[in-house]
């Protein structure tokens, strides 16, 4: 028996919205500690990892660990039948569920849906806990804007960290550009820019993955970029009181 009730169903919709362009079919894992999801995009350049802790739910029960394979596209079709202010409950009775039930509750209506599940034998990558040599915390809409703007100039975006801060740069056929974001310790947390740089990094990434993933900035006003030289970068959106949504992106490396 599994049941998880989102107080704020809109949050669940934003999470699905953020990952739907990156991953197609995913295994949703549920156990006593909460719900998690890990899936790669088709080209294996990006890995999406979601972690939602049971304490963040209005109601949460999971007697036995469950794996529910689902199509993000079909999940979205079901979620489109819910309102952004609905409470959303996920539920299944069986130990080997073939469907996942959804209840959408608002003050004037209650809806029930069943999503057919599928069995997906996806390899799960083991992402080790890593000490990153550069960790930058900045406003998520600022990061989104920089990626979108520089992405118009070149499909690869460079990220360079130093004690002074973080610099994004592009060198394309039409020309080049760079954006240096200054550290600031304003008292408004959502505008703060913090850099912990033990070792500076200089990395290059395909910016289209950032642009696909930055829909997640609706989840949090801040984004955390964790980097080490020649390692995948982690973009993390903290989901208040619930957990986090992470995008791991493999770097482009100079041959």
């Amino acid at each position: 028996m599994f049941e998880a009730k989102f107080e704020d169903g809109g949050l669940f919709k934003k999470i699905v919205e953020a990952i739907k362009e990156l991953v197609k079919n995913v295994n949703l894992e549920a156990n006593g500690t909460g719900i998690s999801l890990q899936a790669m995009d088709t080209s294996h350049v990006a890995l999406v990892a979601l972690q939602l802790n049971e304490k963040g739910f209005k109601k949460y029960r999971c007697e036995k660990s469950l794996t529910m394979g689902l199509s993000i596209e079909n999940l979205q079709k079901i979620l489109k039948c819910s309102g952004n202010d609905d409470q959303i409950t996920l539920r299944t009775q069986d130990e080997e569920p073939t469907t996942l039930s959804f209840t959408f509750e608002s003050k004037n209506r209650i809806s029930e849906f069943q999503l057919n599940l599928m069995s997906l034998d996806q390899e799960q990558l083991g992402v080790p806990d890593t000490e990153y040599s550069s960790v930058v915390r900045m406003p998520s809409n600022e990061f989104t804007k920089i990626c979108r703007e520089l992405g118009n100039i070149n499909e690869a975006i460079g990220i360079e960290t130093s004690k002074e801060g973080i610099k994004f740069y592009v060198k394309g056929d039409i020309g080049e550009g760079q954006v240096s974001v200054k550290i600031n310790d304003t008292e408004k947390p959502e505008e703060r820019v913090e850099c912990e740089v033990d070792e500076p990094v200089n990395l290059s990434f395909a910016v289209r993955y950032f642009n696909l993933f930055n829909k997640a900035s609706a989840l949090s006003s801040q984004v955390i970029l964790s980097m080490s030289q020649d390692q995948p970068l982690v973009i993390e959106y903290i989901i208040e009181e619930m957990g986090s949504l992470k995008l791991y992106l493999a770097p482009k490396i100079n041959d």
Partner: peptide
């Protein structure tokens, strides 16, 4: 020029 790496190179299948 730059070559795009993939995740499998960094993280192991569990």
């Amino acid at each position: 020029d730059y070559s795009q790496y993939v995740m499998d190179r960094f993280y192991l299948d569990e």
